[in-house]
């Protein structure tokens, strides 16, 4: 699949390795993701999923290999990093909303300060996004006054407000009570169907089956196996993948 779309790959990782001190967290990870593709990354705890997804926007620095995002190569040049971060939105497991700002301020902060948009335009856009994630009535509240599911939807709206070309999700539903997982997944599904390029670390296999173009299985800092959800679920090639899937399905 990636071969046919080679010219349109928006994320290209080639032989990416990363060490924490002497511990190797990523060993030669290569992955190409096409524009509009939805990729789900899964694997056991400690396998390097977070580390990998965080190298894509340089929250973690890789030591070996090349990462190219939307044609910009990730180097230590801060201008490249900033340019990439403007195009890549991220949603965290712990939401990481800014507790001292209202929902509206959380969402408009980056468009105003990073994109240089006017307050008026940013607020109009924020309301539109809040409408889309289904919580337009919460704009004046503080994050602490919202439920977990609402907070995570605000976090998604906050990332979308920058009009990113790529969205990264690192276990966006793991910190949520079961009854709130669906409302967040629904927002993510809509986003996926709307053509957004998405890389999601998640163990929600129902979500993967429904909207993922590809599933990547990681273990010990390496990509063990990848394929379409149908192929991977029905017929995993590797023993480790089989074992992992049997545990979570």
């Amino acid at each position: 699949m990636s071969a046919t779309l080679q010219g349109d790959d928006i994320i290209i990782c080639e032989g990416v390795s990363k060490w924490y001190g002497s511990f190797q967290a990523l060993s030669g990870v290569s992955l190409r993701i096409a524009r509009g593709e939805v990729v789900v990354v899964c694997g056991p705890s400690g396998s390097g999923k977070s580390t990998f997804i965080r190298t894509i926007n340089r929250l973690e620095e890789h030591q070996v290999g090349r990462i190219t995002v939307d044609g910009i190569e990730m180097t230590s040049d801060i201008r490249n990093i900033d340019a990439i971060r403007r195009e890549v939105g991220m949603v965290f497991q712990q939401f990481n909303l800014f507790p001292h700002l209202t929902v509206m301020q959380n969402i408009t902060l980056a468009p105003i300060w990073v994109r240089g948009r006017t307050r008026r335009a940013s607020e109009a856009r924020a309301l539109e996004l809040l409408e889309r994630v289904g919580i337009a009535e919460q704009a004046t509240k503080y994050p602490g006054q919202l439920s977990g599911g609402q907070q995570q939807r605000v976090a998604i709206a906050r990332a979308l407000a920058m009009d990113p070309k790529i969205m990264l999700f690192d276990e966006p539903t793991s910190a949520l009570d079961p009854e709130m997982v669906k409302e967040v997944l629904d927002v993510m599904k809509t986003l996926a169907r709307g053509g957004m390029t998405m890389v999601c670390v998640t163990h929600e296999m129902g979500f993967a089956r429904e909207v993922a173009d590809r599933i990547v299985f990681m273990d010990h800092g390496q990509i063990v196996e990848e394929g379409t959800p149908e192929a991977l679920f029905a017929n995993p090639q590797q023993e480790r993948t089989r074992l992992f899937l049997s545990q979570i399905l």
């Binding site: 971060r85 991220m90 965290f92 902060l109 980056a110 990073v114």
Partner: peptide, 13 residues
């Protein structure tokens, strides 16, 4: 929490 800085940096601030 470190997540505050990470979220800000991820937004491009």
């Amino acid at each position: 929490p470190a997540g505050q800085t990470e979220a800000a940096r991820a937004l491009g601030l």
